[in-house]
Write a protein that binds this DNA or RNA. Structure first.
Lengths: 162, 162
DNA sequence: TTTGACGTTGACGCCGACGTCAGGTCCTAC
DNA sequence: GTAGGACCTGACGTCGGCGTCAACGTCAAA
């Protein structure tokens, strides 16, 4: 398979694939003329990379997980890495839930206009006293797994502060 | 309240507050000497902004929501905006869940080393056949709301492709 | 009145996952 | 053999939310 086909099957650009190779995340054979040739498994590999990127893992981290992905053998550091990232993702989901709740409150207020709007906006979740001790479970909402627009499907998450 | 106090109470830098003002997200009075003075409500405002940022809303979008936040009156466009962002967040959470599941599979495999590792890694979720029709509900995991490191609390999510 | 913590504007830097040219090469169908 | 689509390398651009330095002004306590 050449680069174009891998790209269209995995839903990424050819530029992205060259970038992955540059970062050591993806390898390829070459034809006599120097063109990249990939095995079928490359498509799955790219999809995994995309998923990890979408969860905010930087390429360096994904790179450090690659030996584990390839061999199925987990070094203890790779293991710790995975656990840490897992926790980061969970924390991020908590943040997202909070943000979505904030939006919900805004939508709610915007929906039925009442003079006493502001208090309701302030009320829960982002408390004025610093403690962030809400035992907020990720609500078991059915997540409406409808047909999402494909170009929105690969939204990412990243940016650590400080 | 001056800028330093708002910053420490809201858990952001003073640079961030000046940036918010520059973007029109936050306003302030000035003392005779030109120093910024904020009302108490600014702290809550900043926290809301941070939450929306953490959910991947760009400052321009937050800006377009500001009149709605201030007046409690929802223009139809602001309403549509909020609904769209809400949906984007939900989709993002689905992606995060998928990524976390992928990590879980990797962890699982790394944990108990067996020669036939690769098939298990490939099996579910990121299917080789293009259809992404898993009716994947966000699992009702208790989310372990333990004491997260505060400097990790404001991880963000962004980056739309294409 | 002094001092030193806190504030101001302005400007440049950063990072990461690519987009996007430019100028050339390869491959294959006709 | 040739057209034209796919591919190559290299290089610079982008975007957003700040960090960070410089050079300077304010303000309250001692």
């Amino acid at each position: 398979m050449r680069i174009g086909e891998v790209a269209s099957r995995a839903g990424v650009s050819t530029r992205a694939l060259r970038y992955y190779e540059e970062q050591g995340l993806l390898t390829s054979e070459r034809t006599g003329g120097g063109q990249r040739v990939y095995p079928d498994s490359a498509v799955e590999r790219v999809r995994l990379i995309q998923q990890l990127f979408a969860a905010g893992l930087p390429s360096r981290t994904v790179l450090r997980l690659m030996p584990c992905i390839e061999t199925g053998q987990g070094s203890p550091e790779a293991f710790a890495l995975m656990a840490a990232e897992r926790e980061r993702i969970t924390a991020l989901m908590t943040d997202l839930t909070a943000a979505r709740d904030a939006l919900d409150r805004m939508i709610d207020i915007a929906n039925h206009p009442t003079p006493e709007h502001c208090p309701a906006l302030r009320e829960p979740a982002w408390s004025p006293y610093d403690g962030a001790a809400e035992a907020a479970g990720v609500d078991p909402q059915p997540v409406e797994a409808g047909p999402r627009a494909p170009e929105l499907a690969l939204a990412g998450a990243g940016r650590r502060t400080r």
